[in-house]
Design a protein around this nucleic acid. Structure first.
Lengths: 336, 336
DNA sequence: CGTGTAAGTGAAATCGTTTTCATATTTGAA
DNA sequence: TTCAAATATGAAAACGATTTCACTTACACG
């Protein structure tokens, strides 16, 4: 475990010069540079990152907060974010809040203790006023989240548009009784989708009916349950918009099992464009979210904020969302 | 951003005493302890982790190497590992090798630069002799991997058993022409499953036929392709063992689409017990891997190795694997 | 009453870098 | 030829904690 001092001695130079070589500072002559590099190789030297961080007051590490990783949406977010980070020479520390405000608050200390240069929140469990004080210790960037109060950058997807285009698609297929199915009421993501959903109905002069709304659907099991709840209604819906492919898959799966035909008797649209939507029979119409683009942008913004140190300003970056039409909303049995 | 010095001054004590309070050392009188704690609260002080790491030569950070996160098996591994780490007061840095030896080698420098206390490899892309030298800088623990050469702890699942019980199940259902379908030949995971597969056949006096083997199936698309390749064979298999639920789902999906009935005309067994196996129609028989247990054990072993500093010894911890029988191998249409 | 041990505290060294500041040399323009 | 700017190097301070070592006081025991 050699130190910069060892390298300096072997090269017959000062620590300063070695440091300059390591950091590509100008003002090092070519011959000394070679001496240093040779000495470093000979000793197998690599700089100690704690020492570096301590002196230069940066860690090149960013913390990413997610509720949990298994959720495919967040898997993809983490995957994309890690790649974006690697590209820029940053490491990513993963923090699973598991929907707990306490855990979230606890992880926030990474910023305070200077273990990370910044925090990207892809999930918010506390009120903003609780999180705000941490801004004294470094930048916070919201990703796929948004808070009215928060005076920080926010990189997000146009969820309202997502709800809108999916619903409009169903309306165009002739449906008039459309159920609304969503989980995670906490998040503004859900509420924005509902705004889009309502806007589409409004355009067609249809009233939003609360009895068609199911706001506690997270898993495929929930989807199965919701299917039965819907079908028990008088004048059951002929189509359903869901905020999750898993829920959509549950609904489709249960419908088929019960002898219903999809989309003829019930059209279903999911959200997220997960792998499963292409595997089900019928395949499921869904809304594709450009997660990778969002992740890259969020990381890019974070890196910029770390550099500039001006991060107490709201900036919103929004990406468009795209409908992918598959069999669960359009009957193409004839074509087969 | 106050330092330990500030706290010491405010409390009218020395840095040493403050440090003792922070680290719960004995030999601090109760009244001084109170003074220190009050001063810390008043200043909102938290110790700087870079300074701590530098002096105490540990970071309380562990690196986890995975090929990629989106793969549900690894999602679950990362999720479980993060929780285990949090429990023990460690942070997790995620490293996606994306199956690249260069990326893996590059991430290994985290150990050399002392940015992490240890590395857990849930994926190995380089020869062991390439990785071995890094042991000079800290412990390496294998998780779900194994290497003949590696003189380090290895926490794994009994993959051979997995291949065995799944295959035996098919044999018990009366199948005699069973296809073998696998991706990732690099990994010993695949080869161990094949060992189990072959052992089961052997017990039934059946010869392993290479023409029934497909070793390049990773995705559901590959599954669709393999389905057609299988069915084109003379005397096509009546059952197929796959090393992945995604592939199994692809096979099932394509079979149904082409008018085949599962399991009557083709029985399919997957691997991983992913969510999708319960959503497909029919549901898919699969092999459940106790990923969470494995992750916890791997982290536990790692923490112990960090403490003891004796980690250049092979130790193998193996967990049993379990078959979950569903509709894709057992006809229960009658029951419906 | 002496003395060995435990309890309590602080000064200073230390961890391994980067940064600041000082200084020497070279270059180029007037 | 002169002198300011650019280039090149090193000594020492700084980053913020923990650890070592030395020292004092209190207490128990023979």
């Amino acid at each position: 475990m050699s130190t910069i001092e060892d390298v300096a001695k072997l090269a017959g130079l000062s620590r300063t010069t070695v440091s300059r070589v390591i950091n590509n500072h100008p003002y090092v002559s070519e011959d000394k540079r070679k001496l240093v590099i040779e000495a470093m190789n000979q000793l197998g030297y690599v700089p100690n990152s704690s020492a570096r961080s301590l002196r230069s007051q940066k860690t090149d590490v960013i913390a990413l907060f997610v509720p949990r990783i298994m959720n495919p949406f967040f898997s993809q977010l983490v995957e994309s974010m890690e790649m974006a980070a690697a590209e820029k020479g940053y490491q990513l520390i993963i923090c699973q809040t598991r929907y707990s405000p306490e855990k979230e608050l606890n992880y926030m200390n990474l910023l305070k203790t200077k273990q990370v240069d910044g925090v990207i929140l892809a999930s918010i469990q506390n009120e903003w006023k609780v999180l705000e004080p941490f801004l004294d210790y470094g930048p916070i960037v919201l990703c796929n989240e948004f808070d009215e109060q928060a005076n920080v950058p926010s990189v997000m997807l146009d969820q309202a548009q997502g709800g809108y285009i999916a619903t409009k698609h169903l309306l165009e297929q002739g449906h008039r009784r459309i159920a609304y199915c969503q989980g995670g009421t906490r998040s503004n993501v859900a509420s924005h989708r509902e705004i889009g959903f309502r806007r589409a109905l409004l355009e067609y002069g249809i009233e939003f009916e609360e009895r068609y709304a199911f706001r506690d659907a997270f898993s495929s099991e929930d989807g199965r349950r919701v299917f039965h709840q819907m079908m028990k209604l008088s004048a059951p819906p002929t189509a359903v918009f869901t905020g999750s492919d898993e829920v959509a898959a549950g609904i489709v799966s249960e419908a088929i099992k019960c002898g219903y035909s999809v989309p003829e008797q019930l059209a279903v649209v999911g959200f997220d464009n997960q792998a499963i939507t292409e595997l089900m029979e019928p395949t499921i119409t869904t809304v594709h979210q450009p997660v990778e683009k969002m992740a890259h942008k969020a990381l890019e913004v974070m890196v910029e904020k770390i550099r500039s140190r001006k991060y107490r300003r709201r900036e919103v970056y929004e990406f468009p969302i795209e409908l992918i039409v598959r069999e669960s909303t359009v009957s193409n049995r004839l074509a087969k």
